[in-house]
Nucleic acid binder design. Structure first.
Lengths: 241, 241
DNA sequence: GGGTTACAAATGGTATACCATTTACACAAT
DNA sequence: ATTGTGTAAATGGTATACCATTTGTAACCC
């Protein structure tokens, strides 16, 4: 558990699960509080299963209860917290089974993204994804797990974005957000790093060839490997690492 | 446009997009308001593109602004309305392109559901889906489009539920909610009714054979047919039916 | 020691007041 | 007739008060 103090309110820029800087759209306080809470969940400041005291947290973030309540509504709809009537909010704590289910969904979403990206990506988008891939390889050589994880996520988001299917992008982001913390934590313990790199090589090759069906297959299988890593990590944590 | 007065508050039972009666869980007023608003959107009482006046509507539904605001937050997170800072809520009005994107996502979700249902469905679940299919055939013979549509949706939800993938069920429901109104409206004009029945026959055959890959393929293709119907309907409405 | 009950405090849900921003409309100028 | 300006009303965003429900703790009894 990290002992960091609560973050100041999110300004709308960050490299969390949704990754995008929303500089163009003005945000309400409730939206900014929601973004801060997302961060706090991902980084275990608000650990899974913990109670979220609305008044306490509003005080810490120096906002009144109303935007805090609205923020918690947002997060509840996103399934990052569970709101129990008259009992308040609990940070979601996905079981291994639920993680597995989510990953199977993410697998088909990424497969669809792969197929549509192979057809629709601009050349510039391909180049950028390739550049991210090289940066990720560099972080692998440096054994910098945090940067590696973030770049890995950026590549996947880049592929989804290159599908030019906006609805898919949003739904993918939402599923990803539910999995982000678990994957972030499991990345710290990843013992199959080298195999993941090989898979990414294959992904990039199929993408550069614009081979939709092959890319779809590899990306779906890649999420199968993710399950393998994540389940190891969950198992290790449950047995008191 | 229908001229019905606003619904009284949802009690938590209904056959709208999420279909389930949540009798076991107590609901807050905000949740009940959200459910009523969903209904009003689906049934065009709140038409696409229309402004949602929070005070006006709260008055009509005889609730105060606070649960109305929370309800609108829920719907905004679900993308059924769009909340613009300082400007309020507008009912979502998905473009033809967006509908197409959503249907492609729904296609892969239903394909995954088909595969997992073929593996995981109980015999009782299969029997129930078959019963719904026969009821749907009966409504086809009676030319009862509304009942046909609802049964059709129940069959799809039944297949998703039979996958025993709870995460998939939720995500499917959410995508479906965004499409529900458009499909409901297009069902009223469906000129390819007979072909849809044939597709459903194939779906049921593959499901009963527990042939996962075949079921997946047919269900995904079925959504392709749905796009064909929906786009005809959108085109017809845009040209002043 | 364990179980039950009563009550105060904590906390969630809603209503309403107040402030901030946008919209609509009347009037003046060109 | 059209455009620009000012102002009041409408409406969104937040703060706070009040009510409803839950939780925690102390006292009592077996």
């Amino acid at each position: 558990m990290t002992d960091r103090p609560p973050e100041s309110l999110e300004t709308g820029e960050g490299d969390g699960p949704d990754g995008d800087a929303n500089g163009v759209a003005r945000k309400t306080l409730a939206q900014r509080v929601a973004a801060s809470l997302r961060d706090m969940i991902v980084q275990d400041i608000l650990p899974p299963g913990s109670r979220v005291r609305e008044r306490t947290l509003a005080q810490q973030l120096e906002v009144s209860r109303t935007p805090m309540r609205e923020a918690l509504r947002i997060l509840a709809t996103e399934r990052l917290v569970e709101l129990l009537p008259n009992k308040g909010a609990i940070v979601a704590d996905p079981s291994a089974g639920e993680v597995r289910e989510l990953l199977s969904v993410l697998g088909v979403l990424e497969a669809l993204a792969g197929e549509q990206a192979a057809a629709n990506a601009t050349d510039a988008e391909l180049e950028e994804i390739n550049a991210l891939h090289y940066e990720m390889l560099a972080s692998f050589k440096r054994r910098d797990r945090l940067t590696y994880f973030k770049l890995n996520q950026s590549i996947h988001r880049g592929i989804v974005a290159a599908s030019h299917n906006e609805a898919l992008k949003e739904i993918h982001a939402q599923v990803n957000a539910r999995l982000y913390r678990v994957r972030y934590q499991s990345n710290l313990n990843n013992t199959k790093w080298h195999a993941a790199i090989t898979e990414h090589d294959s992904i990039l090759e199929a993408l550069n060839d614009r081979n939709g069906p092959r890319l779809a297959r590899i990306m779906c299988a890649h999420l199968g490997s993710t399950w393998s890593n994540v389940s190891d990590s969950i198992f290790r944590q449950e047995n008191g690492a």
